[in-house]
Design a protein around this nucleic acid. Structure first.
Lengths: 110, 110
DNA sequence: TACTTTAGTTACCATGTGGTTACTACTCAT
DNA sequence: ATGAGTAGTAACCACATGGTAACTAAAGTA
């Protein structure tokens, strides 16, 4: 078995590099969902009903690889897994807030 | 003939809505290329050699639809077309600068 | 014994996005 | 008559992303 490391060929543009981190369809929503709280997988799924479990798993995995979220697994049955924002994930908060502000001012108000 | 209006089903999240505007692979680069200057199609293509003409056309069209850039066509031969940032496009400048800063601090420095 | 619960995985499919290559229209200069 | 130069189009293809449905493991509970 080979460990797959996503090789998004080093992006030298900081803006594009940053956008790749939150580029997935659901990543901003997930970040928002975790912004203040640690949540279990099922909780996240319940709060974002439109996302399928497979895609949620995929996105969380990518975000873990990108060190945006931390995954903590408890070896119990039934399984329990908790997700929370890493420092890097938290550091994105203000930026997301700015994007939100821009969006409100320049898109939704139309 | 039916005019195609891209129906990106109204996105109520301002962050996602904003990300859709710059979500294309080359859009941040194009915005950067036009940030201070009006440029002809060929100029943009020359400054972003990695992008194909077709994709450049596509992206510029989308950005025009999204009112990020203004396309000005002169009816001469050979044709001349100039692209520049709209007010909305310019208003994105500070946000892009923040993203750049974040990218530099949290990705590239590693 | 069978069912429930959680956090996934597997196999498969549909679509969107980006990409390549060749082609066009029109006029001026050679 | 031919070629150059500009801003595209047209036809086609490959891959990444997102989506569905069915399945799994392990222990506790009825």
């Amino acid at each position: 078995m080979v460990t797959k490391v996503k090789k998004k060929q080093a992006n030298l543009c900081p803006v594009s590099a940053m956008l790749e981190l939150i580029g997935g369809k659901w990543k901003p929503v997930i970040l928002y969902c975790l912004r203040n709280d640690t949540r279990r997988f099922g909780e996240i799924a319940a709060r974002i009903p439109a996302i399928s479990r497979k895609v949620l798993t995929d996105q969380l995995k990518e975000m873990e690889n990108d060190q945006l979220v931390i995954r903590k697994q408890y070896n119990e049955t039934p399984p329990r897994v908790e997700y929370s924002l890493s420092e890097r994930g938290k550091s994105m908060g203000p930026l997301l807030a700015e994007m939100e502000k821009w969006g409100n001012e320049h898109i939704l108000q139309v």
